[in-house]
Nucleic acid binder design. Structure first.
Lengths: 355, 355
DNA sequence: CAGTCTCATCGAAGCGCTTCGACGAGGGGT
DNA sequence: ACCCCTCGTCGAAGCGCTTCGATGAGACTG
C-alpha cells in the first residue's frame, strides 16, 4: 500500500496533479475554482491530469484553507407523530438539492440538542444548518440565533423574527379547501381539525389552517364551521356525530387531522352519508394517505420536495451573503380525487335511504 | 465582527487556548487526545481554559493533520418498497451510535451512485461507509471493494466475501416461527412467503426464511409446507384457499410478506377460520405493522435499532484496524400478541360454525 | 520604442491541528 | 557522586489546500 515516498498510495494530492501537468500547484487550484483566468490549453492539460490521476480535493484541507466546508447540517427531529413518508421525502429532497449546489449533508438528530448545534458550528464542520420540523417554542431556536450561523428552519416557531423559515402556507391551504367545495356548489361546509389540545397550545399550523378556511368561506358567502377533532376512533365518531347534529345539512367536510381521517371516513357511511354522494371530503394530508384511503381523497398535499428544495436554496443564498425573505410560504396544491363531488340536488341521504 | 488581528471573532483556536492556559499548543493537543501523559495540574488548567473560551477543534484542520475525519457516510436507498418506519429507526440508531463513538454522519442518497462513493472516499471526507438496504446484486458493492475503505453493509449481497455484513438472521427467524407454533401444540403448519418471482431471483432473505422454517419443522417432527404468495388481494386469497384445500387441517400459519399480510388476515375469517381460534398466525414484519393489524400479530420483528448499533460498532472496529466477522446475523425476537393460541382441541371451525 | 496594461502563471505564506524528536527536571540505581 | 530512566512539556515540521502579491510575456498606446 505504501509508496516509496512513504505516502498512502490512494491519496492523490494537488501537488501530484501539478507535477503531472507540469504547472504550479496554484494553477491547478485556479483551474478548479475558476477564480483567476487560465488559458484554455493549460486548463485542458490540468483537467486531463486530474481525470487520469483520479484526483479529488481533500475536503479537510479545503475547509481549512478556504474556511468553507461545503457541508450543511440537517437537524432531524426524533419526535414521533411526525409523518415519516413526508419526512423521508423531505430529507431526500434536501440531500439532492444540496448536492446540486455542491454541498454534502451532515445528519444530526435532535437528541444532541443545543450542545450538538454548538459543536457543529464551532468546529467549522458545516457552513450552515437546516432545522426540520420546528415547533412553536423550540429549544433550538435561541441557540440558532446565538450562534449566528446561516440557518433555515422548516416550519415556524412562535417568533420567527430574524430567522429564515419555510413551510406550507396553511392559511391558503385552508382557504383552498373551502374554495374547492364552494366551486362544487356546497354552501354548508365544516372543518374538522387537530385535537383540542393542539389549539390550546397555540400551535401555528392548526390555527392558520382554520383561519384560512373560515376567511375564505366568509369571502365566498357560504356557511362554515370549524371545530377540533380527537384522534381516537371514539372521539372522531363523536365529533362527526355532533357535527351532523348541529349542522344536519352540511355537505362539504375538510379534515385536517391525519390520525382521525380514517375514522371519519369509516363513520360517515354508517351515519348514512356516502362519500362523495352525500358529503364531499377534502383532506389536508400527505398524498400517500390520500391515495390509499377509500375513496381516494381530494386533498391538499404537503409539498415535501418543494419545501426541501426551497430550504436548501435559501440556505445557499445566505451562505453567499445574499438577502433572503424571513418567511417563505409555499402555495398549497389541491389534487382532486374521488372524495368530492357537486352538491347533491336532492334531500339529505338519511331520508333517501329510508333511515 | 472582526478583531484587531483581522481574524473572525467566533473562531477560537488551539493557540488561543494555549496562550490562555500558559502552555504550548502541543500540550493542549495532548490534553485533548490523551496520547501523552500530562500532569493533573496542567490538564485542569487547559480544560478550564477550553471551557472558558468555548473552544471546539476545527474539524477540517483535525482531519487534515490526523488523517481522520471522524465522520462516517450513511448511504440510504431511495428505492420505494423499503418500509419507512424501519428505515428511520435504523437511521436514528446509526446516528446515535456514531455520535457515541465520536463520529458524525454524512448522509448520501444512492442516486449519486458509485461516483458519489468515490468522491466521498477520495476526498477523505469520511473514514468509513455504511451502506443500507443492500440488494443481492448491488452496484455499490464492487465500488466498495475497489475503494478499499472500511465499510459495513446492512443486508447481504449475493457474494459477501471480503465484506462485512449485518442483518437479521432470517434462517433463525423462520425457525423461531415454527418453534413458537410447535410449542402451542400445532402439528400442521404452513409458511406463506414472498411472491414467486422473488424466489426465482434467488433473493437471500426469502430463501433463508423458508429453509429455517422447514428445517425447524422437520427437527420438531411436525408437518410443514412452504409456498409463495402473491401480493394482490386476489393472489393472496387464492394462495390461502389453495392452502386450505391442500392442507385442510392446518392450524398454524406464518406470513412473511408484508403486502399480502392484510389480505390474508381479511380472507381467513371469510373462509371460516378465526384468528387465533382456528388458525394461529405469526408474521415476520415490522412491529408497527404487527401492532396495527387486527388481531395484533404475534411476530418476529426486524430489530432495526440493534442492526444500526451493530453496524456502527463493526465499522468502528474496522476503523481501529480490529478484526471483524464477515457476517453478523442478529437473533430474531418473537413478540407474542393475540394472533396465536394453542391448537384447537375440537374439529375445524368450518364444521363448528355450521358452514 | 519606451511606457503601460492585461493575461497567465508562479512561489510562498498561511489555515488550525497532530505528532515527532528534543530537552530539562526529578528519581531511582550503583 | 555518577549515569540512566521516565515524565511532562515544548518547538517545529508538516497535512493539502487557497489566496495574495509578484513576475514575465505580449499587446497596446502615443
Amino acid at each position: 500500500m505504501a509508496r516509496p515516498d512513504g505516502k498512502r498510495a490512494d491519496m492523490v494530492t494537488i501537488a501530484d496533479v501539478a507535477r503531472h501537468a507540469g504547472v504550479a500547484v496554484s494553477t491547478v487550484s485556479y483551474v478548479l475554482s475558476g477564480k483567476r483566468a487560465i488559458s484554455t490549453t493549460t486548463r485542458q492539460r490540468v483537467l486531463a491530469s486530474i481525470a487520469e490521476l483520479g484526483y479529488h480535493p481533500h475536503a479537510g484541507a479545503r475547509a481549512l484553507a478556504s474556511r468553507r466546508a461545503n457541508v450543511i447540517a440537517l437537524v432531524l427531529p426524533l419526535r414521533t407523530g411526525m409523518h415519516l413518508p413526508v419526512l423521508m421525502r423531505l430529507v431526500t429532497a434536501v440531500v439532492t438539492a444540496a448536492r446540486q449546489a455542491g454541498h454534502d449533508v451532515l445528519l444530526m438528530t435532535a437528541d444532541e440538542g443545543p450542545a450538538g448545534l454548538r459543536r457543529i458550528a464551532a468546529s467549522a464542520m458545516v457552513d450552515g444548518v437546516l432545522v426540520m420540523d420546528v415547533e412553536m417554542s423550540d429549544a433550538r431556536v435561541p441557540v440558532l440565533r446565538e450562534l449566528g450561523r446561516p440557518s433555515v428552519l422548516i416550519g415556524f416557531p412562535a417568533d420567527p423574527t430574524g430567522l429564515t423559515c419555510v413551510d406550507l402556507d396553511f392559511h391558503r391551504a385552508g382557504a383552498r379547501c373551502a374554495e374547492h367545495l364552494a366551486e362544487l356548489g356546497h354552501t354548508r361546509i365544516a372543518l374538522l381539525g387537530a385535537p383540542p389540545v393542539v389549539y390550546q397550545r397555540d400551535t401555528g399550523f392548526a390555527r392558520r389552517t382554520r383561519a384560512g378556511f373560515l376567511d375564505a368561506a366568509e369571502r365566498l358567502g357560504i356557511t362554515a364551521t370549524a371545530r377540533p377533532c380527537g384522534e381516537s376512533p371514539d372521539d372522531a365518531r363523536a365529533a362527526v356525530e355532533q357535527l351532523l347534529m348541529d349542522v344536519p345539512d352540511v355537505t362539504g367536510l375538510v379534515v385536517h387531522n391525519e390520525e382521525a381521517l380514517a375514522h371519519v371516513l369509516a363513520v360517515l357511511p354508517r351515519l348514512g352519508r356516502g362519500v362523495p354522494d352525500d358529503v364531499s371530503v377534502v383532506a389536508i394530508c400527505p398524498d400517500q394517505v390520500a391515495e390509499n384511503a377509500w375513496p381516494p381523497l381530494t386533498a391538499v398535499l404537503i409539498p415535501a420536495e418543494e419545501v426541501g428544495r426551497q430550504a436548501v436554496f435559501l440556505l445557499m443564498r445566505k451562505l453567499d451573503g445574499a438577502p433572503v425573505p424571513e418567511s417563505t410560504l409555499l402555495g398549497p396544491a389541491l389534487t382532486v380525487r374521488r372524495s368530492t363531488a357537486s352538491r347533491p340536488v336532492s334531500e339529505p341521504a338519511a331520508a333517501r335511504m329510508g333511515e
